[in-house]
Design a binder for these strands. Sequence first.
DNA 1: AGCCTGACGTA
DNA 2: CGTACGTCAGGCTA
Length: 895
Amino acid sequence: MTDTNRPPRLLLLDGHSLAYRAFFALPVENFSTATGQNTNAVYGFTSMLVNVLRDEQPTHVAVAFDVSRQTFRTEEYSEYKAKRNKTPGEFSSQLPLIERMLDSFSITYIKHPGYEADDIIATLVTQALADETSGLEVLILTGDRDSIQLVTDRSTVLYPMRGVSDLSRMTPAFVEDKYGVPPHRYPELAAIVGEQSDNLPGVPGVGAGFAAKWINTYDGLDNVIAQADKITGKKGEAFREHLGDVIRNRRLNALVRDLDLGIKVDDLVLTEWDRASALELLDELEFRGELRTRIMDVVAPNEDAPVEAGVELDGATLAPDTVGAWLDAVGAEQIGLSVRGTWGSGTGRVNGLALALADGRAAYVDVETLTPADDAAVAAWLADAARPKVLHDAKGPLLALAAQGWDLAGVVEDTALAAYLVAPDQRSYDLADLSLRYLHRELAQAGDDDQGMLFDEDANVARSAMVQARAALDLSAELAGEVEKAGGRNLLTEVEMPLVGILAGMEKTGIAVDIEHLEGLEAHFGEEVRGEAEAAYAVIGKEINLGSPKQLQVVLFDELGMPKTKRTKTGYTTDADALQGLFKQTEHPFLLHLLRHREVIRLRQTIEGLLKTVQPDGRIHTTFHQTIAATGRLSSTEPNLQNIPVRTEEGRRIRESFVVGSGYDSLLTADYSQIEMRIMAHLSEDELLIEAFRSGRDFHAETASRVFDVAPDEVTPEMRAKIKAMNYGLAYGLSAFGLSQQLGIDPGEASGLMKEYFETFGGIRDYLAGVVDEARRAGFTETIMGRRRYLPDLTSDNRMRREAAERMALNAPIQGSAADLIKVAMLRTDAALREAGLASRMLLQVHDELVFEVADGEREQLDALVRAQMAGAADLTVPLDVSVGTGRSWHEAAH
DNA sequence: AGCCTGACGTA
DNA sequence: CGTACGTCAGGCTA
């Protein structure tokens, strides 16, 4: 907890020297984003900064940077710092990122042409210490020893000892103890000894010990120089010989203390930081986990800064039998709702409900102590569509409430979905963040006594729930304009929000599992895992962990001397492709056992994972996430039912375990065929492609016949396979190299194939190029329904980043439009099921496929209904082809 | 314990 | 040097 009366403390950082240290301390290969931006220096610098902010609680902060290598020192002595390695580009590219990080923390950074960061720091220290009445303490965090001269009773240097975590606290006593001279004499000592890192040679053969002795004996370097002939021995001789160097060193290592920075210490007060832009940058840099949390915990708003009006919540836990009256008083006003409880795996419970209004009124309903009258009032209010409610992520609450026997209607805004449409790549509009901001303000306003209690006391469960309810309401207002601007209103109210109830239903229903069948498979594959492992050990004559790429590399490349495969960050890949390649070259039997071992252990793992998630009702209840995938797709977790094996025969046996539940007739699967290519045909308006789809014939064969200019019945399987790969790869931004890899043909042939393809389908070529151009211009891509994805990297100077963004720009409208389409299909199907009064139900969505459980006697009707609703989900220039199958299991229902 | 990496399953 | 996801085991660092 922060102390409002804490003493003023100025923290100064040498941005350049710290970042430079971090750059060499942290292995660059372990710190880079998916797009190739190195981040080790940003990471290390930020980590040091945040730790010091946390541990030292400064009130004022500034970061100084060097502008360039050219300073008055290099003018005076051209060799100054010349021995330093040429600054690597991997380092320089990170400096702007550090500046952006500081911007978002609202921390001032300062550069001054012709001078070094050290001089800026020295100037600020001098200013800060000049006013003796202010009581300002100074901390200097730097990796440059020149700053030791700035140490006084009121200013301390924090010097990183090794890596970026250990800081040595250099007080006057510490300096004197370590170097034998007081801080202000340190540069005199350094002048004699020299400074390797600045390429300032000192007196050969003279170390810190002798230098300190001379300085102390003669009272300062000036006197040592004046009485230089009194020093005897070889060292004295050397000193006299290198006197020029010493004098030059002393002149160069003196820090400039009177720069005109145009900034005062008072200007450096820490103010509230820009949370949204910080989060955005953390996302961009892919800083997750520990550092991210540390940043969020530490860089809190400062109480001295002007604070936005805190949330004024006038509310408490409602007394028995007063719930109805409270709700009546609210009437039809919009209300923020936060549900406390648990949900998932097909069940849930509610502990409490928090309600908040824009005018500050709030209430908490403790579900444990509800009277029957309260219960009825809550139930009626929740179910009343005319009482508008705002929630953040309504699906969980919906499930918890349903478990309690309560219906939820009148949800006018789900802020999690609104935020997703505004910023699908980010997690910036996080309700937890907004609530936390509010709680921090509450803490700042509350007395010191109850600060620590706010989070765990019972009353505070209610309090924080109400704050959260209010935060949802405020977030909704904050996002409203953004949603309009992003053109997402229609998607939000017509697609994403209505989908929530359907997903909740699917999760609650789950899918039945044949446990015995799964257990049989587990035993079967388990047997083979052991067999293959033994066979593999026998071949190489020892037992290793076959699941360890590290140990495998030793065996394959060192002991068996196989040719090196493609590089990974940590060595050479042992993935299935590479192992197959190695087998072709070496025919070593170990590889076959290893590959097979991988395959069966994976199958066994999948089965074990599934078995663990089967609930007491004999069904698996996945969780669908609606705000994860940047393109608009759903994702599925715990377990992921969108990646159940299907490609191999053995994999499909796992699909046999997903079966129709008791009381139902069968499973039905319905999927779109070539949905992405159809969308591409629609968006590109390529006549030939549209014609290919309208013909209703084998699409890949049809396109192959066009590309190779042969009659449809002369298309060979090879031709078809090549064009099929091309068709699928197009929407991903496939390169000639990638295509050649996949088809196992030479890059030249692949390149020729692509050229031929694009000449045949000119509309596709123009469309793909146009999509990227337009996205670069607008800053985002758009799907058929107007779902956006922002891609700022399209204008990046970094080729890797830019090209990665270009591939995303190619793919997002296509994958995203397909996502739009199947979401609409789900809504239409759900509505039609209800309209028709059918008991059949939707269970799963797998991107282009829906799985249903068919009620007795509804098979034909459901088949027709689903076909119609899926095919009619959009009106494209090409037909939407839907294939349907039914069977006892998911496998049998496939077609 | 928590995080990262490689490997691999799906559309 | 192909987009979008989630999960697992191994192994490193705290």
